[in-house]
Design a binder for these strands. Structure first.
Lengths: 281, 281
DNA sequence: TTGCAATATGAAAATTATTTTCTTATTATG
DNA sequence: CATAATAAGAAAATAATTTTCATATTGCAA
């Protein structure tokens, strides 16, 4: 059974006709609208015949328009059970964990929605073409930068990160226009990170940032800005919550980079594996 | 708007007529069947008129039968037919990101399932009663330990972590039986981490670990072991994937600890906030 | 107990929605 | 250029849903 909701529409896409692609685009772009619309409303909106929409549904594997709507609903409407319950003092440790985990899942879902397709491609492209990639973060964001380094060092891309604020600044001043600086700053308003960004821009290196605030000083000045969306819960700030999203973005970029330079990365991953093998029992 | 799917039907139940209750019973008992049935099929099955079913839908707050079906679908069809699609070479960067994010969401769901309620309470208890808490991790796990430190330093619990492997070992040798050592090791088989654990145990300090392998040397020797469950995808190992889960467990413990010593932690969070305020623009 | 008003229900009618069929247009291939 | 295959729209056919009308049932007050 090859019916797969939105993913199914995407996988059929290359084989669709022009009109069918138009229908698919509409659904993929705004799935929440069609679920409550008649086939005639959809057809009118797209200037196609009702029959064309009906045939589209059959083409991608459903019995008809009704069956498509039912299949799409779960991807569009959040199940009611996942209520956003805040943490209360009477919660035991497992209940706290459940709520935190649910909140982190929502952070991932929301971040995936605001993540720009163009920005992702641009960032991957910059990383792939860089002579040197340096990851920077101040305060709590430094742990994310170090984590990014641990991943990218396996990719064959020459990657670096520094646990010390001073070292970060010094190294940034040595970059050239063939290099990429990757900055983590949730607020986009950290003085240290901003100052480092000015240093980097003087060197001519390209800049990428992951931030929760697109309109922030850093968010506006980098070449490519990737955005997170996280929520504040009782006892835990938004910045702490955004770690998960930042790390997931790095994961995605890391995998994209590895995939696109497969042979070179394979050799590099192998070298790292051999190098750390002796540290395991 | 008081429409709430199955829960909404339940909350209206006491006010329904006999026939309406019959319809509600059928839906509550077998919601998966009605979603793909016409109103006439349902009415015939229950020996009621089509009109009665239609009126029932309006009675509980929907525009009609179609709207009810759409609203119920998310509670019936696995919220994610969230196919476990592996990453392929033809994926663009956004598709890679979607698959990675979905994988991370599954990691959180799975980890929440295997997380032991007792172990969580024991870990929180140890952290709350500790004179000193030190977080340790080698290689990529060190970034997780540093992240944990950045969170716990706000809690009022005296917390420490070290970016240097050597410093970790030296500090571990100075612990006492009033202290807690918290170790991150995905495999539970890292030589460095195991050696450090032996040092810690000699000092009499209590030990907590987060590991993906409960039966590992480290997993079996610590006082409290918390487990992650993560999956391997193309181009990304299980260990890299487990970062998200480890961080979420730390989040949960951090919030639990803060919550249980509210006044003391509040003051501490405030102090940290003031201390870093000057680093923001 | 009876009468009346309110509510529930089914059947039929009306309306809406969807699917299929027929015809024409378009495209690709030899 | 001719032909076959495919795509698309309009109309017809079919299916599904909702509303209306008539009747039955229930509850309450006198």
């Amino acid at each position: 059974m090859a019916q797969q909701g939105l993913a199914g529409i995407r996988s059929h896409y290359p084989r669709l006709s022009d009109k069918e692609k138009k229908i698919a685009d509409f659904i993929l772009k705004q799935p929440e609208t069609i679920v409550h619309q008649t086939i005639s409303q959809v057809a009118d909106h797209l200037d196609v015949a009702d029959a064309t929409v009906s045939r589209f549904c059959k083409r991608i594997g459903y019995k008809g328009y009704q069956a498509l709507k039912i299949a799409l609903a779960p991807e569009i409407i959040a199940p009611n059970e996942m209520l956003h319950e805040d943490i209360t003092d009477s919660d035991d440790a497992k209940m706290v964990a459940e709520k935190i985990f649910q909140s982190n899942i929502r952070t991932l879902e929301n971040t995936l929605q605001v993540l720009g397709e163009n920005e992702l491609e641009q960032a991957a492209d910059l990383l792939l073409r860089a002579n040197r990639v340096e990851f920077y973060g101040f305060g709590g964001s430094n742990a994310v930068a170090m984590d990014a380094y641990h991943k990218f060092v396996r990719s064959g891309v020459p990657a670096f990160a520094f646990p010390d604020a001073h070292l970060q600044l010094m190294s940034a001043s040595q970059l050239s226009n063939k290099d990429v600086a990757f900055i983590f700053s949730h607020s986009g308003a950290s003085k240290d990170a901003y100052q480092l960004l000015q240093t980097v821009k003087k060197s001519g290196a390209k800049t990428i940032a992951i931030t929760g605030f697109p309109k922030s000083p850093i968010g506006q000045q980098v070449d490519v800005a990737l955005h997170t969306s996280s929520e504040e819960t009782a006892y835990r700030s938004e910045a702490l919550a955004s770690r998960i999203a930042q790390l997931s973005i790095i994961d995605a970029l890391y995998v994209t980079v590895i995939m696109r330079q497969k042979d070179k990365a394979q050799a590099s991953v192998e070298k790292v594996r051999n190098a750390i093998a002796a540290t395991k029992m």
